[in-house]
Nucleic acid binder design. Sequence first.
DNA 1: CGCGGCTTTGATGTTCATCAAGTAAAGTGG
DNA 2: CCACTTTACTTGATGAACATCAAAGCCGCG
Lengths: 225, 225
Amino acid sequence: MNHTLSYENRIRLFEHLTEEEYRLISNNTKTKYIPKGVYICKAGDLITSFTYLSNGLIKLHKEDRFGKEQIVSLARPEDYVGLLTVFSNKNYNYSMTTLVDCSIEEVRLDIMHKIIRENGGFALDVMKYISNISDKIIQHTYAINSKNLRGRIALILIDFSDSIFNSDSFDMPISRKEIGELIDMTPENVIRILSELSRDGLINFKGKHVEILNKKMLLKIRDLG
Amino acid sequence: MNHTLSYENRIRLFEHLTEEEYRLISNNTKTKYIPKGVYICKAGDLITSFTYLSNGLIKLHKEDRFGKEQIVSLARPEDYVGLLTVFSNKNYNYSMTTLVDCSIEEVRLDIMHKIIRENGGFALDVMKYISNISDKIIQHTYAINSKNLRGRIALILIDFSDSIFNSDSFDMPISRKEIGELIDMTPENVIRILSELSRDGLINFKGKHVEILNKKMLLKIRDLG
DNA sequence: CGCGGCTTTGATGTTCATCAAGTAAAGTGG
DNA sequence: CCACTTTACTTGATGAACATCAAAGCCGCG
C-alpha cells in the first residue's frame, strides 16, 4: 500500500547529479517539522516544491464527487511525495496530510526543473521513479478491487507489518475510518473483519494496537481473497 | 476511458526537439500495419521500442492472479502507448492487443533514451506526458469503482461516443466480455444494463451497433450512478 | 452442417452497504 | 481534575446490489 521503491532505486535518484548540482539542491532545500494530523497541501494548491519525506508517514487523499474521502496512497520515510503531479500540473491533484509527526525536505521546484533540463541522465532517473510509483498505485488499486473484504484487511495488515513497521506487532497509525478509505470499505466492515480475524485467532487487537498471530494464514487470506 | 491528452499536449511532445534530433527519430522509426485482434506485445516481453499509434485502437490488458482478464486502458490514434513502463522497466507490465486494424510507429528505444539524455527540455515534456497518462488511469479506475453498474455503462458509452467516434451512433469495437473487463463487471450484467437502457429508450443497440438516443439522461446516470 | 464461442434472459444466493443503537475514548471548558 | 461533549469504535439486523448458475438462441467458421 505504500507505493515505494526499493532502497536501491531510492538512492539512485540523485546518482547522476554533479557535485555542483547537488550543492544547488541542498542550498535550496528547506527542512520542516510538521506535527501529526496537519495538511501539507490541499488538492488544488499551487505546487512550489518537490517534497521528500525524511521521517514520518503521510497520506495522499482526495474527496470524491460526493464528498467521500479516498486515500490514494501512503508515503513513508525516504519517499518523494506527490510525484504524480509535480511535473505535469501546476496544482496538486491530491491533498497530503501527516498521519504522525513528520519531517520533510522541500526542494524548490524551479531548481528541480532547472537541473532536469540541464542533466538528461537525472531526468531519466526521475522519469523511472515516477513510472514506478504510478504503476505501483495502479497495481495496488486493481489488487484491492479484486479482493473480498477479508482479503483487503489481510493485505493492509501485512503491508503495515512488513513494509512500514517491520514487526508483527505495531500501533496502527490510521483510524478504522481511514483504513476503509484506503481499501474501499465502510468503517463498520473494517471493524467486523478485524473482529472476525481476532475471533479466529489470526490477530489480536485492542484500540490502535495490532498483533499478527498467524501470518501464514493471513497471507493465504490475502492471496486467495 | 481512453487515457489521452488533449491535442495541445500531444503535439507539444516533440516541440523541443532540434531539427537534427527530429531527423534522428524519423530515421529510426518503423511503420507497421497490424490487423485486428493481434498481440503487439505480451506482458513480460522485452521493450525495444517506443510505440506511437497513428491509426486504430489498442487495448492494454493483463491477467489477474486467477487468470481473469483486465483491461487497464485503451489507446486511440495519436497516443503513445505503453508509456507507463517504457522508461522504468526492461519488460512490459501489460499486454497490448489491437482491437481493429492498426498502424503504429515504433521508435527505437535507445534513440529515445539518447535524446532524453541530451535534451532536458524534451525529457521534461515526456515526464509531463507520463504523469498525465498515469493520473488519468488512476482517476479513471477510481471513477469506475465508485459507480454502480448503470453508471459504468453510461460512462463508457459516452466515452466511446465523445472521445473515440465523435458520434452518437457507432459500432462498438469490443465485445460485451471486454466491456466487462474494462469497467469491472460480468458480461451478463453488461448485457442486462444495456437491455435496461434500451428498454427505457436511452439507447438502441443491435449486435455491435450502438445508438445513443438520450444523451442528457445518460450523462445524468453517469454522474449520479 | 455442426461445433464452439458470444450473447441474452431468468432464477438464486452471497456479499457487502446501510441503518440503528450502544459503548468506549478523547477532547474541551469550567 | 472533573463533568460534558464530541468523536471514534463496536455489534446486530436488514436490504440492495451484484455475482453466479443455468439454459436457450445466435452467429461465425471450419
